[in-house]
Design a protein around this nucleic acid. Structure first.
Length: 308
DNA sequence: GCGTACT
DNA sequence: AGTACGCAACGCCTA
DNA sequence: TAGGCG
């Protein structure tokens, strides 16, 4: 394929676009240009969820059936108008320069780098040790149906309702569902994780035939994994509206709770989600400002745990 | 996807 | 000039 | 402390 480069100007930044006709999703014939177009159109909905958060991204320069890779350190050729956040990694004794997405141009540049998945931290660069949400990741085992995942999700909601906490749900973009509980950013990762563990354990106690917090795959059987361990610094969950490297080009799609019974996760793709977005707007926006206290819930969970 | 480091 | 390579470790839990 | 996990 000849390398043809065309320039596009976004918010005053000239971005060279290359390999636009390269096929990224062979089954559907979706090309790199479709990816760039999607992120460009979804930018205003996605950016609030990426803003100020150190970003881990995955890239698939030769399409989803070829080898992809994670990236967190900004490459040397990063344009100088994209912000970074320097974080010292004790393990590898070096600084990591995380990208901080702040505008549409950033996303277009990333898409041209063949970035598919956007994995923002749960905490912001200004307070890296204090997450803004608790997350619960419902991860089905092979053989689980979407309906079963939905049943577990409703039980998570029931537990959180009893704790008087608002929760928000989205598809993972694959088979699972992600539940977010936005909190005041005054709890550290350990507190957040302990809380998530209590919720996950309560759910598994209510649904012993369907859900587990067992992390070892071979001991999980055919139960749905209620993963609370993503509540740790540097751990990542794909952002709302992030593309996934799977056939069909699905995206992680925020839902109204009542919708989870009515949809199939695979119906939300880079080709189908935009009209929904334009019609309903970002229904995940409350996750960014519904800052809840965990004090009462922690107390009630403590009592609950004592009873079990 | 692209810059760098080898041959 | 062509090609190979890197591009992510990290935190957590269990044994 | 090593190994598995995501």
């Amino acid at each position: 394929m000849p390398k043809e480069v065309s320039n596009v100007e976004v918010n005053g930044h000239v971005i060279p676009l290359s390999h636009l006709d390269k096929v990224f999703w062979p089954q559907e014939g979706l090309k790199k240009v479709d990816l760039i177009h999607y992120y460009s159109e979804a930018a205003s909905y996605l950016i609030p969820h990426l803003q100020e958060r150190p970003l881990v991204w995955t890239r698939y320069p030769d399409g989803i059936n070829s080898k992809g890779f994670y990236q967190k350190n900004a490459p040397a050729h990063l344009p100088d108008w994209i912000d970074t956040f320097t974080y010292y990694s004790q393990e590898s004794d070096r600084d990591i320069h995380f990208i901080l997405v702040s505008g549409t141009a950033d996303l277009v540049w990333l898409a041209n780098q063949a970035a598919l998945e956007m994995h923002p931290w749960l905490s912001r660069a200004a307070a890296p040790d204090y997450p803004d949400f608790v997350v619960i990741d419902l991860d089905p085992s092979p053989g689980n149906t979407y309906k079963q995942v939905v049943q577990v999700a409703w039980t998570v909601k029931q537990v959180l309702d009893e704790l008087k906490l608002h929760s928000y749900i989205k598809t993972s973009g694959a088979e699972g569902l992600h539940i977010y509980i936005p909190v005041q950013n005054q709890y550290d990762y350990k507190q957040i994780r302990d809380f998530a563990q209590s919720v996950a354990a309560a759910v598994c106690h209510l649904l012993p035939e369907l859900a587990t917090i067992e992390r070892k795959v071979n001991k999980r059987g055919s139960l749905i994994y209620v993963d609370y361990l993503q509540n740790a610094r540097g751990q990542t969950l794909c952002a709302p509206y992030s593309v996934r490297p799977r056939s069909g080009a699905p995206v992680s799609c925020p839902l109204h709770w009542e919708e989870i019974d009515l949809i199939e996760p695979s119906q939300f793709t880079i080709k189908t989600i935009l009209p929904r977005l334009h019609q309903y707007g970002d229904i995940f926006a409350p996750v960014l400002n519904d800052r809840q206290s965990l004090a009462e819930a922690q107390e009630r969970l403590g009592i609950l745990a004592g009873m079990v």
